[in-house]
Write a protein that binds this DNA or RNA. Structure first.
Lengths: 316, 316
DNA sequence: GACGCTTACGTTCGTCGTAACTATT
DNA sequence: AATAGTTACGACGAACGTAAGCGTC
């Protein structure tokens, strides 16, 4: 048994059971991968993959267990490398963040500014995507941490911690009647065509719940992943924008009207997402604390090494 | 990096930083171990061991972190092998139990009898020792599970689950005055020379606490690890034995007097000990449940994969 | 017939053990 | 002087890549 073999089976599983693709992704030959996998299966005494003739068509029950363990071991290999890097070149490294547009555009800038000043040798990478893509990036270790709008409970290998709370505002063209409406109610807003975030997005479900709770059916004419896109269409007069309060900038958006509507919607929580059992670099703890001061090293470690809340456990 | 290197550094750490001893234990040459360790250190970019000239004299801070991760990985390697064995030869295997004399002699026999009938191909190994030795056997994977009288909280890598509760009796030579003493009190018992378990033992602290609580200073003339030894000395007339109620067998010990003293001492709890993050064989779950029916697979898994209660975490 | 896994084989690289060397106690 | 770790080197074995073979789709 060796680490290579574990990398191979994980990559094959990730590449939908295609050994050739896996060999490709691993920059090695296909027969090599094939052989190593058979050797591992032989050593363990069980088949990991189901074979129909010469094709892989599935994962056996023991294979499932083996893959889970192998994934944890791969994680630990990463941790070892991180330990090495942390102690030999503690100020250098890379930090890969997966997040949504709103966070990247309106929340992260000051955090990143401060971070880069303190850690000039760390290379930052920002990945954008929808919540689903963000979770995948974390799982595949394409991202070290994520900033999302919802708990990541569905993914057993991930953990999420509350970061900050936020609420919404409406943006309108200048001199829009809603700007003078008193009191401002959901009913009033629902009278106008709305432009807001895509359904895939976190905060969106709170919006739907609020309207539904009053028996209202808002006319959402356009959804987007991106606050800037929403504002653009609002300024074209297509409707009223409903977006994160933080996404409105009084200076840049001085040609739009804005009203806070925090009293109409439940607050939403931005969460920090991490892979469980990850060994974090010193600057990663730093970044997280810059993001949200209550997330101390202790709090983070506790979350990383706690048990999953419920549901399936690691074992089979 | 490979698994061999991780085995090597772990063995060196275990052998008190003596590479030659480690090579011996690993059935390989000393230069080979030396070289592999240097290669690993080179790859990670940090020293794992502190060297004074050519001797290893300590573990560096990154080395500490590396060793912890390596230990977890070695655990996972075991888990992989177990998965293989479970699915390829689910009825065969080995079960190594570390426990104290009392458990081995009086609690385990019926459990083991039932177990062997259900799993005739499993080889059982019983290891005896004091609690300290038992914990070490678990940690070194010399034992798969342990039965001890106290929580294993001090060992971060271990977890313990309550198994059963027990209390004590006194045994005396026939016609001893204590057999007729009413009511039977601690004061009465303390008037006689006592023979009981060694201090290293679990239940022993409850005994000391009980006497101390009444301001009594019992005259403990002899301690032993073994109920049979205690009974032998009692039958020689050397004193009164204080031992686990379950260790008295009315038939075999018919030439001794016995009185239950559960009302005088707090109950003690026998606990099942396991290494965290261990993948258990099907028959291991079976054995544990035969030992204590409430320890279902679910309960066990929850304990195995929960976070340590407090104190240091895995990270550095 | 195209795609995909396995077998076969020669080359290359890594690992192992012995022996010689060097440093510490 | 004895013990312990490193360096050097030749032998063995494992892994890799190419090429050919065989099963599915």
């Amino acid at each position: 048994m060796n680490l290579q073999q574990l990398r191979y089976i994980l990559e094959v599983a990730r590449q939908k059971l295609n050994i050739s693709e896996a060999a490709n992704a691993l920059f090695t030959s296909q027969p090599g991968v094939s052989k190593q996998i058979r050797q591992l299966e032989e050593e363990l005494g069980v088949d990991i993959f189901v074979r129909h003739g010469k094709r892989l068509t599935g994962i056996t029950p023991p294979g499932q267990a083996v893959l889970e363990i192998a994934a944890r071991m791969q994680q630990e290999v990463n941790n070892l490398r991180k330990v090495g890097a942390e102690y030999s070149r503690s100020d250098e490294g890379q930090l890969s963040i997966a997040t949504t547009h709103t966070q990247a555009r309106h929340v992260l800038p000051p955090v990143i500014g401060e971070f880069l000043a303190r850690h000039p040798k760390v290379k930052l990478k920002l990945h954008q995507g929808n919540p689903r893509q963000i979770a995948d990036m974390l799982l595949n270790a394409d991202a070290d941490l994520a900033l999302v709008g919802e708990p990541l409970d569905e993914y057993e290998a991930l953990v999420s911690l509350p970061c900050h709370q936020w609420n919404r505002c409406i943006v309108t063209p200048p001199d829009h009647p809603l700007l003078r409406e008193e009191p401002l109610t959901l009913e009033a807003i629902a009278r106008y065509p709305l432009i807001t975030y895509d359904e895939a997005f976190s905060g969106r479900s709170a919006v739907d719940r609020a309207f539904l709770g009053r028996g209202l059916k808002p006319n959402i004419i356009l959804t987007a992943l991106d606050s800037d896109v929403i504002k653009t269409y609002v300024s074209m007069g297509l409707g009223v924008g409903l977006l994160a309060r933080i996404a409105f900038d009084p200076v840049a958006d001085r040609r739009l009207g804005m009203r806070d509507v925090a009293h109409l919607f439940e607050t939403s929580t931005t969460r920090l997402g991490l892979r469980r059992h990850t060994w974090l670099r010193g600057y990663e703890y730093d970044f997280i604390q810059a993001l949200s001061p209550h997330l101390s090293r202790k709090v983070i470690d506790r979350a990383l090494f706690s048990a999953p809340e419920d549901g399936e456990n690691y074992s089979v």
